Amino acid sequence: MKNNLKVQRAIANMTQAELAEKIGVSRQTINAIEAGKFVPSTVLALKLAKLFERSVNEIFELEAAD
Rank of each mutant, 00 (worst) to 15 (best):
K2S: 08
I11K: 15
V43C: 03
Q8M: 15
T42C: 04
T15M: 10
I11W: 04
N4Y: 12
R54V: 01
V56N: 03
M14K: 09
N3A: 00
R9T: 01
Q8K: 15
N4M: 11
F60K: 03
E21G: 12
I33Q: 00
E34R: 11
A65V: 14
I30K: 00
T15P: 03
K50F: 01
N3R: 00
S55R: 06
V56C: 02
Q16I: 03
S26I: 05
E18Q: 11
F60A: 02
N31I: 12
K37S: 11
N31F: 13
E34Y: 13
E18N: 01
T29I: 10
A17E: 11
I33M: 00
A45C: 07
N31Y: 14
G36C: 08
K22Y: 00
G36K: 03
L62N: 11
V43E: 14
P40D: 07
V56S: 02
V39T: 06
N3G: 01
F52M: 14
V7Y: 07
T15Q: 08
N3E: 00
N13R: 11
I23D: 08
A12M: 04
A20Y: 12
N4A: 10
T42R: 09
A12L: 04
I59G: 12
A35D: 03
P40E: 11
S41K: 09
L44G: 13
A64I: 12
S41A: 09
A35T: 04
E34I: 09
F38P: 01
T42M: 09
K6P: 02
K2T: 08
V7D: 06
A10S: 05
A35H: 04
N57T: 00
T42Y: 06
I11F: 10
F52T: 10
G24D: 08
A32N: 11
D66A: 15
V43W: 03
R54Q: 05
A17C: 00
R9C: 02
T29D: 04
D66N: 15
D66C: 13
L48C: 11
L51Q: 05
M1F: 10
L51D: 04
R27L: 00
L48N: 06
E58G: 12
E21K: 15
M1K: 14
F60Q: 05
K2M: 09
A35V: 03
I23C: 04
A45M: 15
N13K: 14
N4D: 09
L5M: 02
E63N: 13
S26N: 07
Q8W: 14
V43N: 05
A12E: 10
M1G: 13
Q16E: 15
R27A: 03
R9H: 02
T15N: 14
A49C: 06
A10G: 01
D66M: 13
L44C: 15
S55E: 11
V56P: 12
A45V: 07
G36I: 07
E63V: 10
M1I: 11
A10R: 05
V7L: 09
A17R: 08
L51H: 08
A64P: 09
